[in-house]
Structures are given as structure tokens and as C-alpha cells.
Amino acid sequence: MDVLLDNLDLYGPGFLNTVELFLISAVGSLVLGTLLAMLRVAPVPMLRATGTAYVTLIRNTPLTLVFFFFTFAFPLLEIVTPASFGSAAAYYRNAALAALILYTAAFVCEVVRSGINTVPVGQAEASRALGLTFGQMLASVVLPQAGRAVVPPMMSTMIALLKNTTIAAGFSVFQAGSISLNLSDRGESQLIGLLWIALFFVVLVTPMTLLQRSLEKRWSIAR
């Protein structure tokens, strides 16, 4: 308990930064991932290929490498210069956000796409036969059904995203993952310090997992 209370100045901002990183990259990756999914189900082969290429490349690259690229290599291309950010923290945080969003979007895209694919073709054909427009079909027939298949795996993806924010520890972004590295300077026990961090994640992740399980169960019966 002492390790936590004596170092609240590390733990407080660390946990807050983790939550903030998570929320921003969650919104970002959901938006980008959905756009990518639209590409992947588009009726134009060219657009589909673009979406597929992106997903294949990103899904097979380690997130640590994506972080490495954005922190160390990307500035060399001089598209955005690090000096244009007000503080050092702002630059490294944006690099981390870019890595998390671009990486997670590929997984969000796959979840959305496989969700849409679970809707039987007959459903769409029937709605077209009834004379529904494309928008009406999406809004009242396909999406409500796809949503049930999308939400549980999407929650897994988001849980993974939350945990992945800790990789930023190696890339000068202060968050829960980097608390322990700072603790050792203060001569505190790293093990106990890390156990508190682990507990923090268990407390955040467990309710999400339980909710995911219950949704999965409830909706699998309804189908």
C-alpha cells in the first residue's frame, strides 16, 4: 500500500494518461476502422483491394514496430516536424496516438466486416424486394443484425487497445506502463509497484469482459 500512496504523484497522472490515450485512440480507431470496413465491402474492386492491402499489412506488423516507426523514423520524412509541437510530451503523445489508431483501425475494420458478413444475403434481398432504399436497408435491416455480431468482438478489440497503450512506455509517453521504470529511481520495490499497475488493469478490464460475455450470451440466444 505504501508504494502506491507514497508515489501517488506518479500513479495518478500515469493512470489518467492511460485512460486518456485509450479514449482518444478508441474513438479514432472506431472511425477509421469503420471507414476501412466500408472500403472492404464496397462494390468497386479497386476500393476493396485498397482496404484489404491496408488490413493485411498492418495486421501482420508488430505494434511495437509501428510505434518505433512513428517515434523515430516518421519525423525524418519531414511531413510533420517535431519542433512544431509546443512541448516534447505533445510530440511523443501524438506519435503514440497515431500508432495506436492506425494499428487498431485494421482490427476494428475486420470486426465490422465480419459482422456485416454474418447477415444472410436473403435479408438484404428481401428488403430490396420490399422496395427499401439502400439507407433504409442498412439502418433497419442489416446494421441492427450485424451489430449483435459486432459488439462482443469489438469489445475484445477495445480491451486489447487499452492494454496496448502500455507499449508507449518505451517511447517516452508517460502512462501506467512507465510508472514502474520511474519507481526504480526512487528506490522503491518494482515488483510491488507493478502489482498495483496490474491491479489497475484488472479492475478496468474485468467489467468490460463480464459485459462482453453477457451480451454475447444474450444475443446468441436471440439470433
Binding site: P75, L76, P82, A88, Y92
Partner: peptide, 19 residues
């Protein structure tokens, strides 16, 4: 404005890039 990386070479590349 404090940047913490894994080794000094990484810091030097960041200095070169103006980060």
C-alpha cells in the same frame, strides 16, 4: 519537456531530427 528513451543513441537521433 523531459524525454526519456532507452539509450543515448536514440536521444542523439532525436536531437538530429529536432525532436
Amino acid at each position: 519537456n523531459i524525454v526519456e528513451l532507452q539509450n543515448y543513441s536514440q536521444c542523439v537521433t532525436q536531437l538530429e531530427q529536432g525532436a
